[in-house]
Design a protein around this nucleic acid. Structure first.
Lengths: 223, 223, 223, 223
DNA sequence: GATGAATGAGGCTTCATTCAT
DNA sequence: CATGAATGAAGCCTCATTCAT
């Protein structure tokens, strides 16, 4: 009998698949309802299992949430870190690609909901907040700062305060994700991420580029 | 009976103040803990009344929340609108003053909590979200756009997409308020609003100013 | 209208009575079922209130149990301490009275169930165990040791190892309480506490009294 | 096939041992944690099998508990009965040896846990309690009473109430086992069984010995 | 026989809301 | 008007038991 799962009984295959199914369901519900308002019973139901099964794979709600973050956010950060270290083009191009990549991998996906959720509920759940800060925010900041320092070192960017600039750069990206999960629903003309990001990139690059560089040369889509 | 408040005995004055006291307490706690984590008993206690009394003034938790948002945001906008229409200096100066004024009047005050609150909870309260959008966000946007158009009309700013630029400008300000109410607690070095805002103003002005304008001339605190 | 509770509305009187009612119900059920097997909902029901009401008066199950101990055991210990310090008769008489008093105030009452419960379940609930050790066991030991030292100092008792003797004296008393709550039910001839205690007192006194004392003189009920 | 266990293949030997392994594991955990707090999963794990396997040998948790008690207590009593009937020394020496032997064969071993277990859980398992009473307690009592009667008959012990004295003698031994499994953990100075038992033997012998006997002569370790 | 994934009833605890005083 | 005691629905988590493989 030809069977694609020779080595494992169907039962065991379930065990392998369960965590992913639960994480997917959890991501959906956390994003849709927020951390506190998500009931683990609903997560289990959406994954097609019972309440108790969830606890076979995740110690508690907090650990489930952390696993969602780890499963979804960390790979994106790893990729981003690699990209920057290996990039060979100009820093302006890198900046543009980084921002658009961020939007593509996180902002435009469900993951943007995690960012929104953390901003909204970090006050409670201090342990989750600390985890998120250490695993996501710190690394994001480091990535952006490294990118800025690369530009400065290569004489492409002015000698700006990278710590503050990092935050100024983060802010519009994070806000775009927050708007998506808050006021976009009730606006007549929801934000166009493309236009918004191009405008943002253009303004920021003009603000950061060294005077010797002709800004227009490095900006292919002025807004 | 001689009394400085002719029409009302002492306790009635107290009674009239109750809703405001409750709203102030609710604002504090909603901002600090979020909607779900705020206990009405704590709101009542902070307002100095009993739990039952709260229900004399607000039908339920949701109505209290809506009232908190409605009550707090409107008064600030009028002033901002006037300032811009009467300003006589350069647009760069206006921009700087507007940003710093925003921080001073809103960001640094309790009002920043309303912004945080709306971003965090808008998903759960469509009605008040719509209200907030129509009464607060739209007017804020109009103010900033008017300011940008003034700069463009006077030849001080490049001809940028004011709709998008408005959002790019809003974002760092809003994020500063959000950080203040979320992750600032767990960061080793909390954000310095002054440095952050100066860096932001510098980058944005460089991004917006027309090329003929010598950027350094209009920037008194380069970052 | 003549009313015996002029100063307080009926409502408030309930609040005053509730803790006692709940403690009484809790004592009953803890003794009957043990700590782990006692459901707080049943405690509340037996006290005639709902589950939630219990939490108005006691933080959680552990605190409820501690309160039961404090309410019931500590007064007996206080009394015992006083009695011993003020006693003026012979140490043999004191010993006899102490043992019989212990039985009367604790062993013969529901409180014996607390002792049994602690012996049975102390392994779990370490915090409760520590509390019980500090508040009850340590003090009981101190009382007995003081009593023994009094007898030795007055030349009535031999110079025995009071630390060990304390335990040897405790043991039969505790066991009597344990038997009452365990095997007594299925024995054809349940233990007679009076005979048992008299035999115990006689044997122990003979074991402890100094040789110069004629044992028979101080033992009024030889077994 | 040559095999030292002719009738059974290797795995079958394993299978025959299973119930004993499970009972041993269950004894450990029931004693350590009590009935309610013992998880069958942990029992199975400690026995090196899966949770499901346990249910092949025991209908449910209650039956496992009963089996644990039944299996462990019977073998020890026969030896004790023989020892007493054949003893030829003084009754004081017999008493001392009996007590110390009890501690050595039961108190210091895992079997002490059964005693603790029965005292703690007898209320919840009438059936096994009756069994334990009939098969263990009654026989133990008979042994001690026979020992006391021997001493009285030989004129070594006073004419005491042997039924009560039996219990008074049992109590400190049982309590020593109970302490070992309960409060010993949280006491700064855990009990020293040797000192405790010597003190106990000394006090009891002095209490029991006939006046003509010089107590000091028969007590080789006064406390 | 043996496994271990899955179940779901049950216990503890919280808190929005009610209502007798 | 004001109080605050009381309620009970709801959520998190545990674990004895089942059953497909």
């Amino acid at each position: 009998m030809i069977c694609p799962f020779k080595n494992k009984p169907r039962w065991a295959r379930r065990k392998d698949a369960r965590p992913q199914e639960l994480l997917a369901a959890a991501l959906d519900l956390f994003v849709e309802r927020g951390y506190a308002a998500t009931r683990l019973e609903d997560v289990a139901a959406q994954a097609g299992v019972s309440k108790g099964t969830l606890y076979l794979y995740f110690t508690n709600k907090e650990e489930l949430f952390k696993a969602v973050v780890r499963e979804n956010m960390l790979p994106v950060l790893n990729e981003a870190e690699e990209t920057i270290d290996q990039y060979e083009g100009t820093s302006a191009e890198l900046f543009r690609e980084f921002i658009l990549g961020w939007w593509e991998r996180i902002g435009a996906t469900k993951l943007s909901g995690i960012t929104k959720l953390m901003m909204a509920e970090s006050g409670n759940f201090p342990e989750v907040t600390q985890f998120y800060h250490d695993e996501v925010i710190s690394r994001s900041n480091a990535i952006i700062i490294r990118m800025l320092e690369r530009g400065i070192a290569r004489g492409e960017f002015r000698s700006i305060d990278v710590v503050q600039a990092n935050k100024v750069i983060c802010a519009p990206i994070i806000m775009l994700m927050m708007w998506k999960h808050s006021f976009n629903a009730c606006q007549n003309e929801p934000i166009s991420p493309e236009n918004y990001l191009n405008c943002f990139i253009d303004l920021l690059l003009r603000g950061m580029l060294a005077d010797t560089t002709a800004p227009s040369a490095s900006l292919d889509s002025p807004c």
